[in-house]
């Protein structure tokens, strides 16, 4: 029983990270029908950037805010330079390759300069674990689901209630029509990638105290985030976050009851099977193909 509570709690926190990343993928996909394929590296910049800035003497909040802002800029640059020119035609695959190239550059240059090992990011919330029914968990880990839910609602509010958010939805719905009513679709897409960049870095910053900030912290997590988004159907914010959290919990249960080694093999197989059963994703609706 205690073990199960422990798995659920850690799963909830790990899953929230997947959820946040999937949310970023969703934001990018909606606007551009393309994503930064190596978004995990932007996530990594949030953690690593904060650590580096703190080592340079900045206080935690300033370091984090700077890292997140920096990642947002990186997100925008990736869109402008590496996605937009390679996403001109439907079914383009160029953007996949260019963003992978960027991802490789970001990750390997970080490894070369920052070092291959993880470094701690000390926050007050990882000093003492709290006990819930005999299971121990850091307050920082509990912060993650809170952040994921808050981000979901914030995003929904942004999409539904603000002019900019509505414009973004319009672009995702029909780029040409949005252009005809005076929305600068290119700028909206740029903004979407910047928001996603900030969101990813925010997640990276939040999880870094728990997992340590390292150059490779984003690779697998980013990929899982994308798979989560796909399984959810990349159709709405709630869907991707829910699937993210569920996947995190499922992973911890597999780890706990089977083995850590089998976790990814089983997890990915599960995802492939889900996709086989629900080709449009769990929360996605069949797209009406315009003929």
């Amino acid at each position: 029983m205690e073990a199960i509570v422990q798995y659920l709690l850690t799963g909830l926190s790990a899953g929230s990270v997947y959820g946040l990343i999937a949310l970023g993928f969703y934001v990018m996909w909606s606007a551009a029908k393309a994503v930064n394929f190596t978004y995990g590296d932007v996530f990594m910049l949030g953690g690593v950037g904060t650590v580096v800035l703190m080592e340079l003497g900045l206080p935690l909040p300033v370091a984090a805010a700077t890292a997140i802002a920096g990642a947002a800029v990186v997100g925008a640059i990736v869109e402008r330079v590496f996605v937009r020119p390679f996403n001109r035609e439907a079914n383009s695959i160029g953007w996949m390759l260019t963003t992978i190239a960027v991802g490789i550059m970001i990750e390997s240059s970080t490894t070369a300069t920052y070092g291959p090992l993880g470094r701690p990011l000390p926050t007050p919330l990882v000093e003492h674990p709290i006990r819930i029914g005999g299971s121990g968990i850091y307050p920082q880990e509990l912060l993650l689901p809170v952040a994921a839910i808050a981000a979901t609602f914030a995003l929904e509010f942004f999409y539904k209630r603000t002019v900019l958010g509505r414009a973004m939805r319009a672009v995702s719905f029909n780029r040409v029509a949005a252009g005809l009513v005076g929305i600068d679709a290119d700028r909206i897409t740029l903004l979407a990638f910047a928001i996603a960049g900030g969101l990813g870095a925010f997640a990276g910053f939040l999880v870094a105290p728990v997992v340590q900030a390292s150059a490779s912290m984003g690779v697998i997590v980013g990929l899982k985030g994308f798979m989560v988004a796909i399984i959810a159907g990349i159709a709405n914010a709630r869907g991707v976050v829910i699937v993210g959290i569920l996947y995190g919990v499922a992973e911890k249960l597999i780890e706990g009851f089977l083995s850590t080694a089998a976790r990814d093999a089983i997890g990915f197989t599960l995802m492939i099977l889900l996709l086989l059963l629900f080709p449009q994703g769990l929360f996605g609706r069949a797209e009406v193909r315009k003929v």
Partner: peptide, 24 residues
């Protein structure tokens, strides 16, 4: 089969995943 039904991008993601699981 499960991936190309929907979008080509999915295949790219699934193949990365397969690669990682394989090495794992």
């Amino acid at each position: 089969f499960p991936t190309v039904r929907v979008r080509g991008v999915y295949l790219a993601v699934i193949t990365i995943a397969f690669g990682l699981v394989f090495v794992n």
